[in-house]
Lab assay of single mutants.
Amino acid sequence: MAAGGDHGSPDSYRSPLASRYASPEMCFVFSDRYKFRTWRQLWLWLAEAEQTLGLPITDEQIQEMKSNLENIDFKMAAEEEKRLRHDVMAHVHTFGHCCPKAAGIIHLGATSCYVGDNTDLIILRNALDLLLPKLARVISRLADFAKERASLPTLGFTHFQPAQLTTVGKRCCLWIQDLCMDLQNLKRVRDDLRFRGVKGTTGTQASFLQLFEGDDHKVEQLDKMVTEKAGFKRAFIITGQTYTRKVDIEVLSVLASLGASVHKICTDIRLLANLKEMEEPFEKQQIGSSAMPYKRNPMRSERCCSLARHLMTLVMDPLQTASVQWFERTLDDSANRRICLAEAFLTADTILNTLQNISEGLVVYPKVIERRIRQELPFMATENIIMAMVKAGGSRQDCHEKIRVLSQQAASVVKQEGGDNDLIERIQVDAYFSPIHSQLDHLLDPSSFTGRASQQVQRFLEEEVYPLLKPYESVMKVKAELCL
């Protein structure tokens, strides 16, 4: 049975990233139509530049190519590739079939990587351009969430054990800070992308030097003109047959890092959902379990974690691919890159769409948070109580021993009897502590235990987050809708 299948058929496997999760716009960027249309555009740009620099290419040939950029006979191309065992030459023939007058000058002087690699770089750039505003929107939604809850005390956790208090907004800023680093890295790697350009079979530009009869300047002009037509500021000066596969490492490393950030955020949300302090959106008709109707599973956060793990592992592909590119190139890269580049971007696209949807509907339960604080705060307040007693004339050592005994009794009630923490009640009825009984409410005010959390939130948002989001103001209103 021949390899390949009808990918629109229910009898043929289709990647869930495309069929179930990723956005239509990201799927289109990695589609065959987008790819092969870009090949034709690159052939047109090459012909236009070659004509401008004096090669015998007519206006009629150029116009014929322009008129057929979208006229792609995919069936013919597939048949040609089956016959020739070469995808680029299959599309040269297919393009030439609908451009008979231009057929002889299509791909003039070029090698397969002229269309293959340059198209990949265009796709990487455009895919990054799709991700950047999506990530900015996630940051914006979380920034709104953090600002609104900047002063809401909550129990902090280290080692997932109760620690000092923080605020809900401050905790959210930990998430935002990681995503801001990801946004900066995505922008950097996007701006650092260079075009492969017009380089020939081993990167020496020998074929173009021959076409222009040894004119170095025209060869350099050709490279520059096509690079500018493709919208790049610069091209690699040095290439082998391909652009260095280190570029793929750079791009997928940034995406993998984004995956790590999203995994951490969504894990926190899942843990908070278990504590009943916070939940992701839950639709009115949504079913959490087929057997347990009360369940409210954090399905979206779980999906993000599941896909983020996949995204983090994909960076190993370009690392290994770059390491086995012998001399000017081997074909070890080809099949692998067809999979890992598309999957990385479709996965990143999915987790950003999902995280935006989550961040637009996060639900906080202040009463649950308050109750958990009441359970733990008495123990945390013991040092403040000791200091207040010393100020009232008591002995630190005597007070410490009193607190120690009462704390152990209260802990026994919590752990052995399943009761509430009654340390404060014990202190309130103990005559030894009568000098500070009137101060206990103040000493137990949760806001006095959150330090500068709310001020940190305000400063972080104003100095770091809002300036970073400013270039994306025009796209901030787009909502994230999930079908599944």
Rank of each mutant, 00 (worst) to 15 (best):
F74P: 13
F208G: 05
L124H: 08
S261L: 03
G418P: 03
K233N: 09
M89I: 04
D349Q: 06
L307F: 14
L468T: 13
A150R: 15
D420V: 08
L155M: 04
F28E: 09
C113T: 04
K101N: 12
K66L: 10
Q221S: 09
Q320L: 10
Q161H: 00
I427M: 13
Q210P: 09
A22E: 07
A260C: 06
L275D: 08
I269N: 00
H93D: 11
R452K: 09
C340R: 04
S447Y: 14
F282S: 13
F74R: 11
G214C: 09
A22T: 14
V168Y: 06
N353F: 06
M65C: 08
A348P: 04
F232V: 02
L346V: 14
Q397E: 06
R309C: 13
M76R: 12
V262P: 01
L55Y: 07
Y294V: 04
N71K: 12
M181K: 09
E343W: 02
A150V: 06
L331T: 03
L319K: 02
I403F: 15
L44T: 06
G104K: 14
T382W: 06
A136I: 15
Y243V: 15
Y13W: 14
V368M: 02
K134L: 14
V88M: 05
P162H: 06
R125V: 08
T350S: 15
S9K: 11
R125G: 11
L255W: 02
T94D: 06
T347R: 06
L132Y: 14
M316R: 05
T158H: 00
I436S: 06
C483V: 14
Q456Y: 05
V115Y: 00
L128Y: 07
A22Y: 09
V390S: 06
H263K: 02
A163T: 02
L69S: 09
L193R: 04
G240S: 07
E25L: 08
T239N: 01
L484I: 14
E228G: 10
R83S: 12
V138M: 15
Q164Y: 02
P56W: 05
T38L: 08
P56L: 13
R149C: 08
I424Y: 14
N353M: 14
K229Q: 03
G116S: 13
S19E: 15
A230W: 01
L314P: 05
A308F: 03
Q458E: 11
D144P: 10
K170C: 02
Q164D: 00
T154I: 09
S253G: 13
W45D: 11
W326D: 02
N384S: 14
I72H: 07
E50C: 07
Q286L: 02
Q356K: 03
V414R: 04
V390A: 09
G240H: 07
E250V: 06
S334R: 05
